[in-house]
Amino acid sequence: MSIFDGFKFRSESSPIHEMDPRAKFIYVCILFSSAIIFNNIIPLLILFLIQMPIVFLAKVQREWLRSMKASALFATLIFAMNFISLYFYAGHETLCSITERSAAMTIRFLVLIQTFSIFFLTTSPDMLGLALEQSGIPYEICFAFTTAVRFVPVLAEEAQTIIDAQRARGLELESGNIIKRIRNYIPILIPLIVNAIRRSMELAETMESRAWGAVKNRTNLYALRIKGRDILLIVSSLIILIISVYTSIYIRVPSITQMMHC
């Protein structure tokens, strides 16, 4: 299992998958900002929990769980760092309050991961490319982006094949000092690069054969259109943003420690 599995798009039909990537992007930005605005545990927990229905609606709970597991180590690290620094520098705080503040920072991190993960799990790179295109980014760049995404798994597989083949011929990857180790990778990199160049030549040939660059204004099979549910998402995100900003300015949200007089 790799860390990236928690972010890798998997084709699935759900209302969230069908949403306009631009609407989802606005949602991501707003949740990000809201998570940054607060450093109090209760609103951060709320931000975390209100995203759960979306996870289930998108049917990506397994992948979501995976992304959470993958971030567990990092989350622990954030907790420990905060805890230690608060313990030494914020002298007069109780242990409870230090724990709570460290937990809040950890949850903030998880909210960011979760938002990211929802976005990438439910947005096909094709749609992302389309969104880039319709935002006025030159087609060549969008094409490079989607093609790169398309070939990542292919190249990863190829790299593994080459590693296995070179290992079978006695190549040791995990031995020697750092320079030796880097040098060990040369017999893997060279075939990989040569293959990639050959592949890109063939791709270029195919593109040429399919009338690449024939007209200035190329058309697109898909068109992004903002639908009712996209507006709903944008509006709810905006409401979240307004509430967040309002709360952080005018309301002092109590911490759990204060509420329990711990």
Partner: peptide, 28 residues
């Protein structure tokens, strides 16, 4: 061409089939 893998560059089959027509500017 010979190698099927290097002739398909989109992320879905139908998008690939549409590629040439998109290049020609055919209406959606």
């Amino acid at each position: 061409f010979q190698n099927p893998e290097n002739q398909l560059f989109a992320l879905s089959v139908e998008k690939d089939v549409a590629f040439g027509l998109e290049n020609l500017g055919v209406p959606r």
